[in-house]
Structures are given as C-alpha cells and as structure tokens.
Design a protein around this nucleic acid. Structure first.
Lengths: 245, 245
DNA sequence: CGCGTTTTTGAAGCCCCTCAAGTGTAGTGG
DNA sequence: CCACTACACTTGAGGGGCTTCAAAAACGCG
C-alpha cells in the first residue's frame, strides 16, 4: 500500500512509521461523506481500499466531482491550516480508510523529512491533476473528456499495480463519470457507447478492459506529462510569447 | 505588498526577511513566458506588480488558462520537487517580478516557520480556487462562469487593497477571459455585453467598475466559502450521503 | 496617420442538454 | 420462487447554448 508514497524513495524505517500511522483503520460503506463542505477539517484520511471523490454541490442541485481518490491516495494534509472545508469527500465504494490526527501527522512530518517530502510531492501532483481537469473540461469535447478521464484512471491504476492483464476495476457509475466530466449522464452513456463501438474500451460489471491503452490515450489526447515527462515545445500559434531572457 | 502573506500574522522580523528575499526584482513586458511547460522548474516567482496567468496549450491550438496571478501571488514554492513544469506561466501585463532561488526559499522556510505556514496557506487556497474553477467550468453556463470569474477577481483585488471606490484594474482582454472560462472570445463578448446591459458591470479602458458587488456575486452564484466562511449544509438532493459516524 | 489588436455584431449549424420512456439487474420480502 | 422496488443503463426526439465563420467598427501605439 505505501508503495504509492514511493515517490521519494522511503527507507524501511520511514515506511514502517508510515504504516504504523495508518494502522488504525475504519471500514465505510459506499456513498458516505467522510467530511463535508463547511465542516471544520478533522483528521487526514488515507484511502487503503476502495474509491472516493472530492465534490462540490451547486445550489441548483448539480454536482461536480473535482478529484477521484484511489487506494493509496490522501485527503490532503495540512487541511488543518484552513478553517473550513471548501468541498466534501465521499466514498464511491465500500472502503477501508485510515485516519491520522493533525498532531500525529505533524510529528510524522517533523521527524521524517523524507516522508514530508513525499507528502508534498503528492500534493503537487494533485494540483497538476486539477489543472489537467480544468483543461479537459474547459477545452475538450465530451468524447475527449471521458476518454481522458479513463486514461488517467488507467494510468493511476497501473502505477499502483492494479492492472490485471488488460483489465482493471472501474467502480464509477455513468452518473459519476458525468459528474466528473461536466456532462450529463445521458451524454456520458452515448460517449461510452461510442468508445465501446470503436473498440477502445469495454466495461462489464464494474470492470474496465482496455485492449490497447496507447490507442485510448491517443484518442484522448492524453499527455502523461502532468505525471511527468518531457513535451513538445514551440511558440504559441499566435506567434506571441517569447521566453524570459 | 507582503500584506498578502498576512494570512498568518507575520511579525516584523519575518516580514523584513520576506521583503529581503524579494529585493532582487526584474521587469518583464506583457505576454512573456516566465516559464514553460516542459522546462525544468527554476526559481520561484513572486508577482510584485502586474498580472500573469498559468496556462496550458492544446495540440489543436486552444489555450486554457488555469489561474490568474495578481500582485502578491506566488508561483508555487517547492516546484523544485517536480522534474518538469506541467504548465506555463506568462505575464498578461508589464510586470515586476521577484525571483527566489530554491536554496534561498528552502532556508527562508526552514528559519521562519511562520513564513512557511503562510506559504502553505497560499498553496491550499490556490488549490481551493482550482476546484472552484472546475465547478464553474464544469457545471455553470457561460453567463455564470464569466460573472464568477469577475467576482473572484474583484474579491481578490479587494483583499489586496486594489479597489478604488467602485473601480479596479482589470487588464484581461476578452480573449483571455474566454480562455479562462472555457468559452470562445466571441461568446465572452456577448456575455460581457449582457452583464453590462444588466447594470452589473462596466469595463472601460482596462478598468472594471462594479456599482453593486453583492448583486454581481449573487448573479454569479458566488460562494466566498472557498476563501472561507460557513455554508449551507444538508443532504444531497438524491437523499443519499450519510455523514461519517 | 496607418497598422495591428481588440471589440462588436450577424448568421448558420452542431454539440450537448432536457424530457421522456423503456430495459436490465440486484436485492428484498412474501 | 416470484412479485416488488430501486438503481443503473439505454435510446429517441426536440430544442437551445455555444461555436464557427465572416466582416466591420473601434481602439491604441509608434
């Protein structure tokens, strides 16, 4: 499980301390709010098993999911600094969750700089993912948004060793995919159908099969740079934009 | 200027150290990339004067702005942890920018916990703003997106003392507003026209006038909770969603 | 004054939403 | 074993918000 915090190489001592901090766990049903918008931030959560999501409700009744949390993911540290939660977090499946109190977290980061560094790394990656979502929702059509989301989830599942041959768990309902992509459930259904007809994906019983991940990524216009590699450079199409110095 | 880092109350010593770190500044023209996607992260930037934005280009040529940087804003610390920038940062106006090297930043945070805390605070607020943008772009129509953006910029201008009576600087072009809201420049124009006709805003010569900020905020469905206050609670409309415990 | 950029306005069309109904699949309890 | 309920998923038809294409008017700067 803590292989995920293997962003910075953790030695055995660090790893064991981390594991110890996560030793007290609770089991939660699906569709339970771990914390709600407006609440005072409490303990930090760590997903050990199962999925969750960050989301915000609109007064008119719509919901927008802003992040998907998979096993190994954190619900950010240092939320303790803020006075109120600006969003809610809910389980999407039955889940096993570890809770780390603010005090203990503080001590953990103080005593183990490597762990602290790994934490900040995940924080920055989370932010990069948020930016990628903004781009996806703001500038891509529904087809590419859905393909992009599935590709991201696939890549993340891969990085935590959850791909079995060409299949992985995908517990999101079509409504949840829609809420993440900023479209309606009806339209999400049509897009998924199209992706299926094109032979890019197959979803059966909460299992996602992708015969050719590269093809899906290509169709999505996926750029795995935001989880980090080099990228094509070049000026903006309008010819503007010199580089500093 | 450093009043912005007055998130956590900084004493005079901290403030002077912070000011010292920002003492070496450079002047940059408008439309210059401070750093580009794919670059190795260099020094951290602090906006002293002028505006900038984070953005990502799409292969097809579109641009999505993911954040607006105003005087006092940072371009996140600890980017040094990441190997490559996942987005670019460009000035929107002529600007005065301070650069703080990774080493100096590290020392500053090490020696002054209060400053470090203020930095993390800004980091978390930035993330909250990203989430608010996702909600806006994903679930609101163009009218509300634009109104929401203007309200946010107004609120931020207010918090750094840049509101003069009922007017503030608003150097964004309509194309830039469109790139931030995920719409076209043509449509942004029509929305702005509508907001003007409704008497909510007036833009002249890069100056934004808002006679009744509360009315604009109401029209935008703006919830200043994400810069922190309490909020209406309640179950989700589908009746799901119990609270933990 | 002249040129590039920004803003403005019109017209046509498509992507996606809304409304609506119907199918499929579990789980529940008689 | 089979109603009965509750969701998740499907599919169709119609409409509207936003885009695309195009072109003209209004700035702003050297």
């Amino acid at each position: 499980m803590q292989k995920l915090s293997g962003y910075a190489p953790l030695d055995d001592v660090d790893a064991s301390h981390l594991a110890a901090a996560c030793s007290s766990t609770i089991d939660v049903r699906a569709d339970v709010d771990l914390i709600r918008e407006g609440d005072e931030p409490g303990p930090v959560f760590v997903m050990l098993e199962g999925w969750a999501c960050r989301y915000k409700m609109l007064p008119e009744g719509g919901r927008q999911i802003t992040a998907i949390l998979m096993p190994g993911d954190f619900c950010d540290m240092h939320v303790a600094i803020l006075d109120r939660m600006d969003h809610s977090i809910a389980t999407l499946t039955p889940a096993k969750v570890a809770r780390i109190g603010p005090r203990r977290l503080e001590a953990l980061m103080e005593d183990h700089p490597t762990i602290a560094r790994a934490f900040w790394w995940t924080q920055l990656v989370d932010e990069a993912v948020l930016r990628a979502w903004i781009v996806s929702i703001g500038r891509r059509d529904a087809y590419h948004r859905v393909a992009h989301l599935l590709t991201e989830l696939w890549a993340r599942a891969f990085s935590i060793g959850r791909i079995n041959a060409d299949t992985t768990e995908m517990p999101l309902t079509q409504t949840e995919i829609a809420d993440a992509c900023g479209i309606t459930a009806v339209h999400a259904n049509r897009i998924l159908k199209q992706l299926h007809e094109e032979g890019l994906i197959a979803i059966k019983k909460r299992l996602l099969t992708v015969a050719n991940p590269a093809a899906l990524a290509a169709a999505a216009g996926f750029d795995d740079n935001y989880l980090h590699r080099t990228l094509t450079r070049g000026r903006r199409p309008d010819g503007r934009g010199a580089v500093l110095r």
